[in-house]
């Protein structure tokens, strides 16, 4: 008993005042592990998780035959003489970028107005909207694709079958990722009061939305757009089954002919998305407190 009670007391300031740094004091009781244990667990898991990434990185430096390290695969990507090998890839990247722009437009022009309308004028619609926007997370993408095939057979007759048409399908997959940051942002504001204040000062509805509401939602909108871009760049299932050439499908094809450049680009893409997401978490933490959000 003495040993058990001695442990927590060791960290407590004997004068009875609150110690300036609370963390170390809590290390010996409650749920929090000691710093050393926590670090060891994180380092071990971190190393295990780094192995595939490091393998991929060294793989891109391996010569096709023999041993040693070489930058030849990196150079190949920028070599004009070998551009034809990668033309599908570049087309795929271009398609994915176009898709990203259109899907961001879908989010900003269709989803955001609906969310604002629900928030400002029809609070009862709010739950429906939330249900609709989170639904795609619970329905496996491949199941939706089963439905997309006939829809796209019809759509083909209307707008053709160019890669950009995928944006309609991907826009649906994106909904949960786009919805949550904006909704979290709306939750921190009292939009009704803000707009009523603007309206009573003589602003019209469009002016109130454009100059008051949207600037206040900037953080949520930026997060949502960045997440949207990362989902579009990583999307594979829909493009694969509907046989469209996007970044991911081109990457898979390329991997069969030139695994080195495939691995190189995969690594670059993972890094790129990581940077995007670090930005997302930074835009969230700047300024006001972010309400606790959960994966549904």
């Amino acid at each position: 008993m003495t040993a058990a009670t001695a442990a927590p007391i060791a960290g407590v300031d004997p004068t009875g005042t609150t110690p300036p740094s609370r963390r170390p004091a809590r290390g010996r009781y409650g749920a929090v592990p000691s710093r050393a244990t926590g670090t060891v667990v994180l380092v071990v898991v971190g190393v295990l998780f780094a192995i595939p990434l490091l393998s991929m990185a060294t793989f891109t430096l391996r010569p096709v035959s023999g041993s040693g390290l070489t930058l030849v695969h990196w150079a190949a990507l920028f070599d004009p003489a070998q551009q034809s090998n990668y033309s599908d890839l570049f087309a795929g990247i271009q398609n994915s970028l176009i898709l990203a722009v259109i899907v961001v437009a879908i989010v900003l022009l269709l989803l955001v107005p609906a969310m604002l309308l629900a928030e400002l004028k029809y609070p009862r619609v709010h739950r429906v909207l939330e249900f609709v926007c989170l639904l795609p997370i619970t329905v496996p993408t491949i199941v939706l694709v089963v439905g997309f095939v006939p829809v796209y057979q019809v759509l083909q007759g209307v707008v053709g079958s160019d890669p950009w048409t995928l944006s309609f399908a991907i826009g649906v997959i994106v909904l949960p990722y786009a919805y949550r940051p904006i909704q979290a942002n709306i939750g921190t504001l009292n939009l009704t009061t803000l707009t009523e204040a603007a309206r009573s000062l003589g602003a019209s509805w469009p002016v109130a939305v454009w100059r008051i509401v949207l600037p206040n939602l900037r953080r949520g909108l930026i997060s949502s757009c960045l997440l949207t871009v990362s989902v579009v760049l990583g999307e594979f299932t829909i493009a694969n089954v509907l046989s469209q050439n996007t970044f991911q499908t081109a990457l898979l094809l390329l991997q069969q002919t030139d695994p080195y450049v495939g691995a190189l680009l995969a690594l670059a893409a993972l890094l790129f998305v990581f940077v995007l997401l670090v930005d997302v978490s930074r835009t969230r933490s700047i300024g006001g407190r972010r309400p606790k959000k959960r994966k549904s």
């Binding site: 393998s55 793989f59 990583g234 898979l252 991997q255 691995a263």
Partner: peptide, 14 residues
């Protein structure tokens, strides 16, 4: 959420 194909490459490389 965004690994997919690219993680498969990592494991092929490993």
């Amino acid at each position: 959420q965004f690994g997919g194909v690219m993680l498969a490459f990592a494991f092929i490389a490993t």
